[in-house]
């Protein structure tokens, strides 16, 4: 199995067959992670640096665990606290790190395109852990794996993505991935949180949950950032919950076996009702977290094969 990419910067660059390759390999890692000896040596001797220019607990922990389980030497750098505050540019930071010869660089940055820029300046493999509102490819991949395992397939499904689409990199990567795999995508949210021109991406847009959720197989909820709740984009938290929060009544419009997903962290009572999030028959939110580690292991494994191939 070869993977013809040096970096994992986005879903946009991936072909459907490559997406399947990553997901298939991730299945192996799911099995490994569920065993008692959660360890392999595929990244032994390699150095992985996690550079997070934006706060993250879950994604960073997931990448860290993925690297450690595969034997890499993992270092975390909280970039908000370091040189960025001293005025160093992104490229200088990248060059400094590059001089330390990392093999895998996992980067999250608040600005769209920043990870692409960084990837042009370093010699190692770069994994995008989220750039601005642009892409979050490993999140889309873990969502895809979760859906495939729950539904038995990753095509011809009707999938609703609900909430703050405009500011969401998760939504963009998912729209691209699920579109490439030939699913029907419905976007649901208030028009103030819908990016302009989004209809041209081959999706259906709704501003009514009951209508949008009709007969869908998968309901993906997005997190609503606190700073967007106070009248700027939506009138209030409670009106948002009333119109766009996922509760049992709204979910009843979806197919009876529809699954509920959320990239976390959740705002219970804002975008999702607590009971739904905890309903083991509907919610696959915990499974998403599990798949996250496996997918990241698969992605790093594939990129490392390329590294070894070039060595």
């Amino acid at each position: 199995m070869t993977f013809p990419h040096r970096h994992l910067l986005g879903i946009e660059q991936l072909r459907p067959s490559e997406i399947t390759t990553i997901l298939d390999l991730a299945e192996d890692y799911v099995a490994l992670n569920r065993g008692t000896k959660k360890h392999s040596d595929v990244l032994a001797g390699l150095t992985q640096i996690n550079m997070f220019f934006e706060n993250s607990t879950r994604t960073q922990a997931s990448f860290e665990l993925a690297g450690k389980r595969m034997g890499a030497d993992v270092m975390n750098m909280a970039m908000q606290a370091s040189s960025v505050k001293k005025g160093e540019t992104l490229i200088d930071t990248a060059l400094t790190l590059n001089a330390m010869h990392p093999d895998l660089l996992v980067v999250r940055h608040p600005h769209s395109g920043a990870v692409d820029l960084l990837a042009q300046k370093v010699n190692c493999a770069v994994l995008n852990a989220g750039d601005g509102r642009h892409e979050h490819p490993t999140q889309a991949l873990l969502d895809a794996l979760t859906i495939r395992r729950a539904k038995g397939r990753l095509h011809r499904l009707s999938i609703a993505i609900c909430g703050d689409i405009a500011h969401s990199r998760v939504a963009r990567s998912n729209i691209m991935l699920l579109g490439k795999m030939e699913n029907r995508i419905r976007l649901i949210g208030p028009p103030t949180l819908m990016p302009s021109g989004i209809e041209e991406f081959g999706v259906e847009v709704f501003d009514d949950m009951n209508e949008g959720l009709k007969d869908v197989d998968v309901v993906m909820m997005l997190r609503l950032q606190k700073e967007r709740m106070d009248g700027g984009f939506i009138p209030s938290e409670r009106e948002y919950y009333h119109r766009f929060g996922l509760d049992a009544k709204k979910l009843a419009h979806a197919k009876p076996d529809a699954i509920v997903m959320h990239p976390g962290p959740m705002n219970r009572g804002v975008e999702i009702d607590g009971d739904i999030a905890d309903d083991i028959n509907r919610s696959v939110i915990q499974e998403q977290v599990e798949m996250g580690v496996a997918v990241r292991m698969a992605a790093m494994d594939l990129l490392a094969r390329d590294l070894k191939g070039r060595a």
Binding site: S112, D131, G132, R133, H134, E135, R169, S196, G197, F201
Partner: peptide, 15 residues
């Protein structure tokens, strides 16, 4: 400028 391209690239845009 707001539109398909800015949405795809996730750039803050103006109408």
């Amino acid at each position: 400028t707001s539109g398909k391209f800015a949405s795809l690239r996730g750039l803050p845009a103006v109408s």
